[in-house]
Write a protein that binds this DNA or RNA. Sequence first.
DNA 1: TAGATTGTTAATCGATTAACAATC
DNA 2: TAGATTGTTAATCGATTAACAATC
Lengths: 251, 251
Amino acid sequence: MSAVRPTDASASAMGPAGERGTGREIPAATIARLPVYHRVLTGLEEAGVSTVSSEELAQACGVSSAKLRKDLSHLGSYGTRGVGYDVHFLTYQIARELGLTQPWGVVIIGAGNLGQALVSYRGFASRGFRVVGLLDIHPDVIGHGVESADTALEIRPVSELESLVASGQAHIGVIATPAEAAQSVCDRLVAAGLRSILNFAPAVLSVPDDVELRKVDLSVELQILAFHEQRRADDPIPSMDTPSLGEAINA
Amino acid sequence: MSAVRPTDASASAMGPAGERGTGREIPAATIARLPVYHRVLTGLEEAGVSTVSSEELAQACGVSSAKLRKDLSHLGSYGTRGVGYDVHFLTYQIARELGLTQPWGVVIIGAGNLGQALVSYRGFASRGFRVVGLLDIHPDVIGHGVESADTALEIRPVSELESLVASGQAHIGVIATPAEAAQSVCDRLVAAGLRSILNFAPAVLSVPDDVELRKVDLSVELQILAFHEQRRADDPIPSMDTPSLGEAINA
DNA sequence: TAGATTGTTAATCGATTAACAATC
DNA sequence: TAGATTGTTAATCGATTAACAATC
């Protein structure tokens, strides 16, 4: 991803004998699954479950127990052989690894349906993300209130972006504008000093090397579904050597 | 993903000597990138570009040219050595592979901010997805109109789901409800006959083996950003043996 | 032909899986 | 101790990359 900053830069800059957990570099595939584990563990905790085995947790998360144990082993040895994992303790360790034990300020650019949906999205607030600003250019929506998960929020003009970042309240920028505006908004977020950006606009953006840009594409998964649905229709009817409906439903 | 239906089932059911393109099974990682290529190609086409090299297209898509060529080689030999790819032709081939050359009917369950955002999302309509229903249980929103990308759309009661699927208009179900309702809505989509489901609710759902369930998590990428932002803060200041700011920006 | 660029090969890398020794 | 379950190992699998022969 970067010729200038090699992938093992942080490992070598880490100094001798690791730093956190096992002291290893955690694989990207593992990081991507930690939010799932965290969510399911939170659910178990709320349900009053105090201990889970890797087999139980894996099933609830939709992964294999081997993969789960391997993933968790990268964080440290937080289980007890013969017993399993303490739900509360493991939840905390994953949260800590993901940086969810400290609050992050999020500024959202674009107060359309999507921007508003994000503000009221409970999955944000419940993980310590606080929307510190919902900005828009459209003059006639400025000042409108939006149902927020915690505090009441008012749509503000984009001109307030820079002061918001300068004040240290905003750590992560979220682009929820139409595709046309996305790149210029992105440039502005970077210029304001943000280094972590999440893009919801259907556009491929470019950023400097030291900016972490991630993307959620609302239609990519739909397109992959279309691919499979098409394959399903194309395939020679797989009814004969396919398990009975009963078997499939009980599986 | 399935003990009942092995991954190579479609390959072996495909009969001798392939079927489409190169006749190979296209890798999942490639499929996941095709929507990106398709979007960028669409943009090039609109910009009047008629030919691209793998190097140019790769750069615009944010991947390496080797990866791009490898990906495209799975679809067939659609380029010309010494010249590059015909933008229009390649766009069409990718669309065909993804199943975007035929219209797909989408029914959305949950007419909150997110459901409404999806209806007005231009990335859906522009790829041939037609929202054939926006359903909700909340009695007081039934009948409200929603700004749609193409036709005007009215929020209808969920009770109309079954007839909508039975009529053959809906091919893909989208869950845009709160987490609590997601599993029961999912069960109902399956019972109604849908086999392709996209879940936006922050819940891990279970479906029978023959149902393709995909998930878009609005907060997973944000959590991964938090992880990196935390690492950025933790790391011993990487100013010394790190490239100059100028180098990083120009890279 | 000479220059350019594809499609493919082979080597490398990272992720997944199954199995089991360690240990509660 | 006996039974259960973790953490780790080693083998397998799939994806990425660089290089280049094929060919326009």
